[in-house]
Write a protein that binds this DNA or RNA. Structure first.
Length: 326
DNA sequence: ACGCAGGGCGATA
DNA sequence: TATCGCCCTGCG
């Protein structure tokens, strides 16, 4: 089945730069596959796995967003539409955001660098949680590869034409996978061929010491902690709940809340955001992450998530980041 | 080769 | 409550 439609710029507020939104290196989900100017990902909508193709003409921030959804069963077009609107941050009012940024002399310069940049939300909250845990103390390339490996080893395979995609495994499934080679070996003891290659364990995905965090977190989400209702909670309560998960500290929790659950007042502080805040608002005096986080949340309120996104992209593109490296 | 970057954790005061 | 060494791997 194929569902095809367009989202015009008059259906949301402000501009859209689809490519920038997807590629701005946000922590929550691996980058979408890019081919022939299309961005492609397998997304579950109303319980149906759909191959989503998203396309926007380049160099026109008001160009319509063209969507094609392919699935075996028929999927409701309105469901696809609202899912896409959410993923690409099209419910956010960028005109209003720019007005806000304009009032702060430190933030006004970010506007020109970030036109049409929106918060790229995760389509699978569990995947978002595991991605965020994997991203801690880790480069983007490395955790992206780790997530890809996890999907390939334990996800369900979907073929669309010549393309193969994998779902992200469920918590119930992921809590049971072997942590490392030794555990994989012990489980297979009786049936082991002589030349067996141990590669179906979490560590072989390159997650390092985070393997045990990932398994324990999967177990807790399966058994104790209900993440389905997290977006109905207050920010504070949801934050504290996430901190119970192993491998989740303040930065990771805020990424999950912002990109996975849409809490726009979250202000995830990594070393870079910490340095940028110190530079812009404290004359370069070092502000430690917990302080920077509180400062950001108090100063920017419901804009905190966007401010963090815009600050980082601005710092990267303006050369500020380079000067902060030393 | 080898030292460092990147968050969270557990032990320390 | 804050600080510190360690965890793992890719990169320069």
């Amino acid at each position: 089945m194929k569902t095809q439609f367009v989202i015009d710029s008059d259906e949301y507020k402000g501009q859209l730069n689809l490519a920038l939104t997807i590629k701005s290196g946000q922590t929550s989900q691996p980058a979408w596959l890019q081919r022939n100017g299309c961005f492609i990902e397998l997304v579950e909508i109303d319980g149906i796995h759909c191959l989503i193709k998203a396309k926007q003409k380049i160099n026109d921030l008001y160009a319509p967003l063209e969507i094609i959804a392919e699935s075996e069963e028929k999927v409701d077009e309105e469901s696809v539409r609202s899912c896409i609107m959410n993923i690409f941050g099209l419910y956010d009012d960028l005109d209003e955001l720019n007005n806000y940024l304009n009032k702060d002399p430190k933030l006004a310069p970010t506007i020109d660098f970030c036109r049409g940049l929106r918060l790229f939300k995760a389509h699978n909250t569990f995947e978002c949680i595991i991605s965020s845990i994997s991203s801690a103390n880790c480069s983007i390339i490395r955790w992206n590869k780790a997530i890809k490996d996890i999907k390939k080893k334990w996800g369900n395979k979907y073929n669309f034409g010549s393309d193969t995609f994998y779902t992200f495994p469920s918590p119930a499934y992921l809590q049971k996978v072997p942590e490392h080679e030794l555990e994989e070996m012990q489980r297979l003891e009786d049936t082991l061929p002589k030349d067996y290659v141990f590669e179906k364990n979490l560590k072989s995905c390159g997650v390092g010491y985070r393997a045990k965090f990932i398994i324990k977190t999967s177990e807790m989400i399966q058994n104790n902690i209900n993440i389905k209702k997290l977006d109905k909670e207050s920010y504070k309560k949801a934050f504290d709940t996430l901190l119970e998960l192993p491998g989740v500290g303040p930065k990771v929790a805020d990424c999950i809340l912002l990109y996975g659950f849409g809490f726009k007042m979250a202000f995830p502080v990594d070393v870079w955001i910490g340095r940028i805040v110190s530079e812009l608002y404290f004359n370069g005096k070092e502000i430690k992450p917990p302080k920077a986080r509180l400062f950001g949340m108090q100063k920017f309120g419901d804009y905190a998530g966007y401010v963090q996104l815009y600050m980082f992209h601005y710092a990267r593109k303006s050369g500020l980041l380079e000067t902060l490296k030393k």
